[in-house]
């Protein structure tokens, strides 16, 4: 398993009050994402465990785009990857952020 972690500065807290959400399933080509509102509102961290090695730069790009788009301030995001394609990762991240905005 390869472990990756990213830390991004965010302008402020993600709207909403939900403290925790989980979306997706660890299955081939899929992933699960746990989102927890436990950090300073100006920070978002993403930790990933993936069985597919060597895609660090793709993960970096996907996460950066997600952070720019969703502004998930205050979230600790943890991902168990089952070999998902980048577009699936992106979709799940947005689904997760939407769940937290409730």
């Amino acid at each position: 398993m390869e472990k990756l972690s990213f830390r991004h500065a965010t302008p402020g807290p993600l709207p909403g009050r939900k403290s925790q959400a989980i979306t997706g399933v660890v299955a081939s080509g899929n992933l699960e994402i746990l989102l927890e509102r436990v950090l300073e509102p100006t920070v978002c961290t993403v930790e990933i465990e993936t069985p597919i090695r060597g895609y660090g730069d793709v993960w970096e790009a996907v996460i950066a785009d997600f952070v720019a788009r969703a502004r998930p301030g205050g979230l600790r995001i943890t991902i168990n990857d089952g070999g998902a394609r980048p577009d699936t990762v992106s979709l799940r991240l947005l689904q997760g952020a939407r769940l937290m905005e409730v």
């Binding site: 597919i52 895609y55 070999g83 394609r85 980048p86 577009d87």
Partner: peptide, 8 residues
């Protein structure tokens, strides 16, 4: 097309 096919 999807940007990635089977097996990334």
């Amino acid at each position: 097309v999807e940007t990635f096919g089977d097996g990334l």
